[in-house]
């Protein structure tokens, strides 16, 4: 409860303090990326099922809603439930055969799925606009408020992030959450205690997919133009990196991972053409020194210093 109030306070305060539209948009993107990382963290961090095609659901959400609003003149709010249901069905159909695989093979399968979806965006020109993408996507409005610029989209996205956090935390702290974590530790044992593992895997995959579709919906209507490159293989890898860097099986880790991976490229602009090298270097260093991810790693360091201050001579446990 206490953590949630702090979270809300930080959101509200940030929205009040930050006035530069560029910074606000950057913060909004962190929120959207957090949704992506959160969904994948449920699939990968908690249930232990690797997915290298998560950007496909992000893209499907963005394209579905954009097409409905551009071509059929639907209101975005009407397009939203349709988009979520449609992407949920796609995720279900993909998960059915895919999640019979495991390990590297599941990675390959989801990677191929991501590629296929990307090439559909790219090649089905009559529908998706091909390389140049879709323009003129209507922004979200609610009465007099438009969620295109300024603080409004920031609050909307972070409000949804906040709700998603609650949803995920409740899921994790339940019978379903325990089942997901058990699947991660030993699929054999999880089946032996009577968990319908294939069904659970499909369910969590659909959950992650729908959350990514929601992120795609928000992205499309905020930026008002989309093109395939946003949803390519590199984006999928980026989401995986957010989860791993932030911390597997950690809700807050998704937030830190998303923030870091969104902000790093911005900060590294000063290095001009060396940007990618420095970027890679930072990720490698984090993985070597904080293999559990930022969240766990920083907590460990904090606890280490705290306990050292208390009892200096004791350096190992019994």
């Amino acid at each position: 409860m206490y953590k949630r109030l702090v979270f809300i306070a930080v959101i509200v305060l940030t929205g009040q303090v930050v006035s530069n539209p560029y910074d606000l948009q950057l913060l909004t993107f962190i929120g959207i990326n957090t949704l992506l990382a959160l969904g994948l963290n449920m699939v990968m961090g908690y249930a232990g099922q690797i997915s290298l095609g998560h950007a496909a659901f992000f893209g499907l959400g963005a394209y579905t809603s954009s097409l409905l609003t551009i071509h059929l003149d639907w209101s975005p709010w009407l397009a939203l439930p349709f988009t979520l249901v449609f992407v949920g069905i796609v995720a279900f159909l993909v998960a059915l055969p895919m999640l019979r695989l495991s390990g590297y093979y599941l990675g390959m399968g989801t990677l191929a799925f991501g590629m296929i979806v990307f090439f559909i965006f790219l090649q089905w020109r009559s529908l998706t606009g091909g390389d140049s993408g879709l323009i003129g996507i209507p922004p979200l409005t609610l009465g007099p408020i438009s969620f295109e610029f300024g603080a409004a989209p920031f609050y909307l996205v972070w409000g949804i992030v906040f709700l998603s956090f609650i949803v995920c935390e409740r899921l994790i702290d339940s019978r379903i959450g325990r089942a997901l974590r058990s699947l991660h530790d030993s699929e054999r044992a999880s089946a032996a205690v009577g968990i319908n593992t294939s069904r659970l895997k499909v369910q969590v995959f659909v959950f992650g997919g729908v959350l990514a579709a929601l992120a795609g919906f928000l992205y499309a209507h905020m930026v008002t133009f989309i093109s395939p490159q946003t949803f390519d293989f590199l984006m999928s890898v980026k989401i995986v990196t957010m989860v791993v860097i932030g911390g597997m099986a950690s809700v807050w880790g998704s937030l830190f991972g998303a923030a870091l991976l969104t902000l790093l490229p911005e900060w590294l602009h000063v290095f001009a053409e060396y940007e990618m090298i420095i970027y890679g270097l930072i990720l490698v260093v984090i993985m070597i020194f904080l293999p559990q991810g930022l969240t766990r790693g920083l907590l460990d360091i904090y606890e280490h210093f705290k306990s050292r201050r208390k009892t200096l001579p004791k350096s190992h446990e019994g």
Binding site: S174, R175, I176, R178, A179, R181, S182, H184, D185, S186, R188, A189, S190, A192, V193, G194, I195, A249
Partner: peptide, 23 residues
């Protein structure tokens, strides 16, 4: 074959999976 990252209590709770029904 235990669930290593879960506590002892959570392991037993997972064992109750078929006798509980929260989805």
């Amino acid at each position: 074959e235990l669930f290593g990252s879960l506590t002892a209590l959570e392991n037993v709770l997972v064992g109750r999976h078929v006798r509980t029904r929260c989805g």
